[in-house]
Design a binder for these strands. Structure first.
Lengths: 225, 225
DNA sequence: CCATCAAGTAACCGTTTAGTTACTGGCTTG
DNA sequence: CAAGCCAGTAACTAAACGGTTACTTGATGG
């Protein structure tokens, strides 16, 4: 492989790309398929999603989808992986260890809730993946180390809180994260059945604010000394 | 093949009027279809469930399914309705108002967790129904009044707790129920992705016990004065 | 400027799907 | 015990599905 020639190619391609919209652009097509697939899988689940629908939403056709992603299952896994990378990347940027332990935990709770609220497709994808007992996620090699960071940083914040005497001694990082995620996930992912059976629109702004406060309150109440 | 012996058996079965197993039994067939459908919809979702699979699981064939339930969607709604009736009926039998407010709430939390644990198909059905924005549940006329009882009794217990000075003044019955349900639902319905990404088997008995305690603790901590 | 190769298209294929038709045979009632 | 109704069967259909084949078109290095 000729490196200098390749970089030359790339430079030219980039320059051309910035000057006008290429009629043929692999990266753009790939991204369009991935985005369309995310929506289709989120709205209909793995079983209900239609390959034709994804191609149409992406403004391309099935052949490209199979060309870039192999088949429906591999495309689905890519969508799922990207979704996890999305939330974990944003989460890292929080640096919850930079503040007081209480503020750090409160910050994580707020972030998680608001991320779930802004990314309903992430919740749907989790739902459909769990329906299938994490059949595809299990095959993913990319995602194991992505999550150790979260629990690690959370554990450090809790330790500091214990030393400062503000948190109870048996506060568990996994339990704290599960508590935060539970309260956000259930409220949003089950909003439709809940609103129906209880006759109250859970998605209404005042109810959302009220639940946001509740999550922070409950999370801290569960670990405060 | 011994024909006379076979017909003899059949006639005998006919004559034992009250205890005989009918070869043709609408109620038994209906029940078998409903149970098979519950499993199939829970395992594969509304989009992934196969009508042929339901018929085979029920030990009958498609024609009967369409005969008794109309079509796939109506069968699915029946399954969903029965699932709700199941949990709400068991819930009523608790009579959480008969004990002290604290015990009543703790009892409800324990019951909900253990019911979810024993009925994973209920959680799956909720998941698939919410994926479709409660499209079918909304059409159900049977279920509205089934739930007012729960919130009503919960509100009464909370009021008593407030008067006795053990609960905070702004404890909200809906929030309390959502808290309990959230912590149970998320842990169980998302156990597969969670176990995968965190590398810990959430379904292990010791972890289940630990989370059960956590739910009761968190619920009470969130409303205790 | 043109040969080449990847990007892109559309029509097609075998299979699976929800739903139907035409039929058989067991149960009840008069 | 005959008659008819209804539970139950199996083979079928049209449409939809995931995936493929045969082909065209446009960008680009030599």
């Amino acid at each position: 492989m000729d490196n200098s020639a390749e970089t030359g190619e790339k430079k030219k391609a980039k320059r051309v790309a910035s000057e006008r919209v290429l009629q043929r652009d692999p990266e753009r097509t790939k991204a369009a398929i991935l985005e369309a697939a995310t929506r289709e899988f989120a709205e209909n689940g793995m079983g209900g999603a239609r390959v034709d629908a994804i191609a149409e939403r992406a403004g391309t056709n099935k052949r490209m989808l199979y060309h870039y992603f192999g088949d429906k299952e591999q495309l689905y896994l890519r969508v799922l992986e990207e979704a996890y990378v999305g939330i974990r990347t944003a989460e890292r940027a929080l640096h919850i260890g930079d503040r007081s332990p209480e503020e750090g935990i409160g910050e994580l709770a707020l972030f998680t809730w608001r991320y779930f609220l802004k990314h309903p497709e992430f919740l749907s994808l989790l739902g459909t993946e769990n329906l299938h007992r994490a059949r595809w996620l299990r095959q993913s090699v990319r995602l194991k180390e992505l999550h150790s960071h979260l629990i690690g940083e959370l554990a450090r914040v809790l330790e500091r809180g214990k030393k400062e005497g503000v948190f109870i001694e048996n506060a568990d990082p996994l339990h704290v994260y599960l508590t935060i995620a539970s309260l956000g996930y259930f409220y949003l992912s089950n909003q439709h059945t809940l609103s129906t059976i209880f006759g109250r629109e859970l998605i209404e702004p005042s109810n959302l604010d009220s639940w946001e406060q509740h999550i922070v309150h409950v999370t801290l109440a569960s670990i405060k000394r």
